[in-house]
C-alpha cells in the first residue's frame, strides 16, 4: 500500500551524516542552480534571451518590490530574495518531475515486491544498515523513494526560515543600531511574533509542498487502482500519468507561488526592521 511519510526517508549514511532523499534532491537542485547560474552569468549577453530574460524579469520583479518597500536602499536585498526564490522554486519543481517519487530504493525486497514494487537492476547499494538510533525507525520501510522534493522536508524549510529571520534581524541591527532595533521588542509579545515567523515561514512552505507530493502520489495510485479494476488491459501507467498531468501543473504553479511568497515575505519583513536612508523611524 501507499507509504506517505511526513519525514524524509534515510537512504544511507555518510559517516554519521544521514543522507535523506530530500537532502539528495536538495543537493541536486542546488547543483543545478549553481551550474545554470554560472553558465548564464559567464555568458551574460547584453541583449537577453531565453533563460536570461526570464531571470532578469524575476529579478526586476523583486527589485521593484524591494524599491516599493524600502526605496533604492532595498536594492541590496534583492539578491537575497532572489536566491530564496530560486532555491525554493527549483527544488519544488524538481520534486514534481514525474518519476522523482516513483524511483525507489529497496530496503526489504520481499516486502517491496508484495507492495507492488518491481525491482529493477541490482538492489539499492546505498541502503546499508544505519549505525544510529534511527535504525528501528528505518527498518519499518520496505522501500523508500530515492528523491523527495527538497521542501517536503522540515529541515530544509526551517533552515531557510531561520536564515531569513537571522538576516532580517541582523540587517535591522546593522542599519538601525542595536538600541533602536531592541526598541521593537518593548512588548514581549513581539518576540513571540518574531519566533513564530520562523514556524510560519517553515511550515507554510513545508505544508504546501508536502501536500502537493501527497496529492500527486494519491492521484497517481488512485488512477492506477481504478484503471486496474475497470480495464485491466490498459497500460495503466500511461493513463495514470496522463491523468496526473493537471495535478502536476497545479503543483508547478503552487511550487512557484510558494517560492514567491517566501521571497516576498522576506522582503516585507526586512522592510519592518531595516532603517532605510530615507526614513528616520519605523512602524
Amino acid at each position: 500500500m501507499l507509504e506517505i511519510s511526513i519525514k524524509p526517508e534515510v537512504l544511507g549514511y555518510i559517516g554519521a551524516f544521514p543522507l535523506t532523499n530530500a537532502q539528495l534532491t536538495s543537493w541536486l537542485s542546488s547543483l543545478l542552480l549553481i551550474v545554470v547560474a554560472i553558465v548564464v552569468g559567464v555568458n551574460y549577453k547584453k541583449l537577453p534571451s531565453g533563460l536570461q530574460s526570464i531571470i532578469e524579469m524575476v529579478y526586476e520583479f523583486f527589485q521593484s518590490m524591494a524599491e516599493d518597500a524600502m526605496g533604492a536602499f532595498g536594492r541590496r536585498f534583492v539578491p537575497l530574495a532572489m536566491t530564496f526564490f530560486l532555491f525554493i522554486v527549483v527544488s519544488n519543481w524538481l520534486g514534481v518531475v514525474p518519476g522523482v517519487g516513483s524511483l525507489v530504493s529497496i530496503h526489504d525486497p520481499a516486502k517491496a515486491v508484495s507492495a507492488g514494487i518491481i525491482p529493477f537492476g541490482a538492489p539499492a547499494v546505498m541502503a546499508e544498515a544505519p549505525p544510529s538510533a534511527d535504525a528501528t525507525v528505518e527498518e519499518q520501510h520496505a522501500y523508500v523513494p530515492v528523491f523527495r522534493g527538497g521542501n517536503a522536508d522540515l529541515n530544509t524549510t526551517l533552515a531557510l526560515a531561520i536564515i531569513a529571520q537571522v538576516i532580517i534581524h541582523a540587517m535591522g541591527i546593522r542599519t538601525a543600531g542595536l538600541a533602536h532595533h531592541l526598541a521593537h521588542f518593548k512588548n514581549p509579545l513581539e518576540i513571540v511574533t518574531e519566533l513564530s515567523k520562523i514556524l510560519t515561514f517553515g511550515f507554510r512552505l513545508f505544508g504546501n509542498v508536502f501536500a502537493g507530493e501527497v496529492l500527486l502520489t494519491v492521484m497517481g495510485s488512485l488512477v492506477v487502482v481504478l484503471t486496474g479494476k475497470l480495464a485491466p488491459a490498459l497500460p495503466f501507467g500511461l493513463v495514470g500519468g496522463a491523468i496526473a498531468i493537471p495535478f502536476v501543473m497545479l503543483e508547478l504553479f503552487v511550487g512557484a507561488i510558494q517560492a514567491l511568497v517566501f521571497a516576498m515575505l522576506v522582503l516585507s519583513f526586512l522592510s519592518l526592521f531595516v532603517k532605510t536612508d530615507q526614513s528616520a523611524s519605523h512602524h
Binding site: 542552480l33 554560472i38 527538497g150 529541515n155 531557510l160 531561520i162
Partner: peptide, 16 residues
C-alpha cells in the same frame, strides 16, 4: 540536516 540545508543555501547564495 538542518545545518546541512543551511549550508547548501549559503553556498548557492555565494555562487549566485
Amino acid at each position: 540536516l538542518l545545518v546541512a540545508q543551511a549550508i547548501s543555501f549559503g553556498v548557492v547564495y555565494l555562487v549566485l
